[in-house]
Design a protein around this nucleic acid. Sequence first.
DNA 1: TTGAAAGCGCTAACAG
DNA 2: CTGTTAGCGCTTTCAA
Lengths: 339, 339
Amino acid sequence: MTTRLSDIADEAGVSVMTVSNVMNGKRARVSPATIEKVLGIAARLGYVPNIPARSLAANSSHIVAALVPVGENNSLLVSPHTVAVVGGMETHLRHHGYHVLLRGIEHEDQVAQTIRGWSLDGVVLVEFPDEQIDRLRVDTVPLVAIDSYSANPRTIGVRSDDHGGGRLAGRRLADAGHRGVLFAGPPYQGMGVVGQRWAGFREACLEAGLDPGGVGSVEVLTSFEDGRRLGLRLRRDHPGVTAVFATADHLAVGIMAGIVEAGGSVPGDVSVIGFDDLDFARYTTPGLTTIAQNMPAKVAEASRIILAEIERGAGAGDREPVALDVHLVERGSVGPPRA
Amino acid sequence: MTTRLSDIADEAGVSVMTVSNVMNGKRARVSPATIEKVLGIAARLGYVPNIPARSLAANSSHIVAALVPVGENNSLLVSPHTVAVVGGMETHLRHHGYHVLLRGIEHEDQVAQTIRGWSLDGVVLVEFPDEQIDRLRVDTVPLVAIDSYSANPRTIGVRSDDHGGGRLAGRRLADAGHRGVLFAGPPYQGMGVVGQRWAGFREACLEAGLDPGGVGSVEVLTSFEDGRRLGLRLRRDHPGVTAVFATADHLAVGIMAGIVEAGGSVPGDVSVIGFDDLDFARYTTPGLTTIAQNMPAKVAEASRIILAEIERGAGAGDREPVALDVHLVERGSVGPPRA
DNA sequence: TTGAAAGCGCTAACAG
DNA sequence: CTGTTAGCGCTTTCAA
């Protein structure tokens, strides 16, 4: 039924190993004539390598798993971010002969279990909180952690320049003349993505001469609905605020909607600036001014690192975390404060 | 290093087979005492089954692949749809002990190759054009095709009630009093998703008494930018049109933007209705009135079918295609035509 | 209820 | 340049 290496070997009159070597590109070890013959037969017979057999024998699977934490019965790939990362990496990895296993992680231990059980060659951690990454103890395969600031030496962080992005946003609002600004982001611990953005934002505002009391922050979950609720009560709860920096476009757009719903206008009464530059940032009225992440670069970088680490074995290397540049995209949701 | 079945067998003083049977839930064949002992040792040793070995021996992998066609160097998971399907199925399948391999397909042949090479247990086809599904010849594993109307008996289609959705849209516009309406969707062949929506839309419009000449259609790619361009030239190219039905929210939102940019208003000058009910449909001003798909149901149904087919072997079964209900979500982009 | 033998298809390591 | 020998860890089949 299925063509095996031995079928090709029989027909070519060579050993299975020779065929194996040819199929795996170890052609330095085989004569050109043999290579050509083997390749011809393989093509004619429609040979397709058996991945499990290869994985078992070589103790390496050519699989890179994209691991995403799941709580409750949540579905995966909820954030457009995660989607871009997973989809983009599949493309890169496929071009290099690797495959992507998509897996939701319910409990930390499953990370190590999955690596062993599948003989994984590499792992990409997406949306993992830093505290969880800190606890990971895996030293057999390269681990790339997207958007992580964990100090775990076993992992390599790939993220945007969140601190710089925060600065860009702070500077923009300060330059526009705002003196009462608000940072809106999810609850966080330590100096992760959110902490970095807040630190950069605050720093730039203060540098620009804002009064520390004029730079506030509020905790909101990253969703349109939670943003909307904040927008609705903004004038009441934060009377001095004339501009808001949200850590995510979803949130920013919700805040805009809430402000308008409460009878205010953007940017007339309140300016809003987001982070990410997702598709829909241009769908709103006015368009959302936001800090754009370079997702293609992020994905390319993550793929490059994973592949490089796999090649050189999960050992030493430039295990330097990577930070991708961000930039400001002007669309219309930021203006001067009302006089 | 790694715990194997034989390690457990040695320690328990039983054979490897007994341990294997215990671990696979074939417990009818083993005495309760043995089961308990084996389970205890397995837990203590931190046993993790080796997936490649199991796949090789059993010629079945417990893997379901999500296959997505890719053109050029496009990235996967571009549409929010695909994302919902893949992410949702991973959750369902994981709860039943199956895994998801995400794979971009560059050439049709890779479908069959992937199935053989991985000993896949099932396949989900996402975003595949019907013509390509028609040509697929695979009879070893269950194939679920999302949004497919292919007649290929080897595949099981799971989709929304596209014809009914088209009807809903047509009825809504006709009821509002529109007499010159336009269907905007991507180029298509046969009666696939787009064809169904168009047929339903046209049917409902004519039933409501519209003149056949008043029900036009135009080909536009499914993107914000192409929609915007259509919106910009709408008044010039389609002077009699007072309402547009777009086959996708992305497109609909772009059309709205183009209309406004050209100096018109929605729904004052032109009404717009979309399809999908994606998140951002509520972010626009006015919100987008659209036909909502029941994505959770679609995903659940697809998963259920795949699992059922795997259980019963890729043979007979209720290979009936499934169509999920849709409904109209009113938001504000549809109103009466200008008098 | 349990076990022994055989092999899934492939590759590592070494020998020639 | 090519082949031989041994398995990888698990399940299938059949026997006890």
